[in-house]
Structures are given as C-alpha cells and as structure tokens.
Amino acid sequence: MNVFRLAGDMSHLLAIIILLLKIWKTRSCAGISGRSQLLFALTYTARYLDLVTNWVSLYNTVMKVFFIATSYATIYLMYLKFKATYDSNHDTFRVEFLLLPVTILALVLNHEFSFMEILWTFSIYLEAVAILPQLFMVSKTGEAESITSHYLFALGSYRLLYIFNWIWRYYTEEYYDLIAIIAGVVQTVLYCDFFYLYFTKVLKGKKLQLPA
C-alpha cells in the first residue's frame, strides 16, 4: 500500500458515495447511465469472486464487499426504486459492442487460461470501457449536472492515481501487471476530454455543457 494506491481507492469510494447520495437526496437518477452501472456491477462481480478463495487483508475484503454491494444498490435504486426518473431515452449506448470484444480479448490476452484468471482479466478490460455509456449519455444530452460531474471526476481520478501507484510499485517492488497497466491507461485516457471540461467549466462554477 502506498499513498497513490490509498488515494486512488479513496477517490473510488468517494465517487460511489457521491453517486448514491445524489440519487438518494434528489430522489432521482436523471443523467446517470444505468448501462454503465450494470457494467460496473458485472465488473466487480467478475473480479471479486476471489473474495472466497484469496484472503489478502481486512481492508481488501471490506472494500470488495463495499464495491459489490454498492454497485447492486445503485442498480436497485435506478431500475426499481427511482425507475420513473431514469432517463432511458438518452441511455442508448450498445453495450454488446463493449461486451463482445472485451470477452474475446479476455480469452486471448490473459496471464493464465483458468476460470478465475479469465474472469479477472475480463473485469479489468470491462472496467476500462464501462464508463463509455455514461460519457455517451453526457455527449448526447450535451450537459451534466455538477454533482454528476463531481462523480465522474472522482471516478476518473481513481484510475489515474492507480497509474502513479503502478509506477511507484515498479520502482520500489519491481512489481508490475501489464494487463492492469494497459487497461488502466486506456480507462484514464477515456476521461481526458471530460477532465478538460471539468477544469475549464465545472470548477469555475459553470455547468458542464458541451458546445452545440
């Protein structure tokens, strides 16, 4: 554990808390992509099956349980409790265009051809692109509420901080995992355009609005 890794995890935690609070307080999930949230739930389910086979630490277990539980809680709020506020007309990204290539890639490019390892690899590749339906939704509607922007910023920062963590680990432990690193870089790059808008607009008190 190093400071970048901890900051990354805290940023991830914060993103989820912001999202759940936004939905709960406003009693609405307007502007949030249910498809991205489904992909995140699938990501954590596939990755954290090792909860039962691989004990790392109490921290690790608590975080994994939190990520799985909150991803399903988000889906419950969006598709059941506050379904009437879900903006499904704008949430139209075709997820099969992500799931199919990600599945094939996980079967071909992995560390070991075993059930758990392929599920882990699948989750790493899927997480990298899971935010695309959400970013597509923002570009389709041309805007995002400030709270949604803060959520996206915290979520994007998480993988960026993990990249610093991987650089740190490479120099201090000679540890590196190419699959995680490459997917993590792709994931972070997808946020670059959003980061730019966040710094130039949202932080100056303006709403995130794309040019028409």
């Binding site: 890794r5 991830h12 630490s57 994994k64 560390h111 075993s114 882990w120």
Partner: peptide, 10 residues
C-alpha cells in the same frame, strides 16, 4: 497456482 499474479489491488 503459485505463479499466478497475486491480486492485492482492487
């Protein structure tokens, strides 16, 4: 498998 990379990250 001991050679499998240890998954200590989240």
């Amino acid at each position: 498998d001991d050679d499998a990379p240890k998954k200590d990250e989240l």
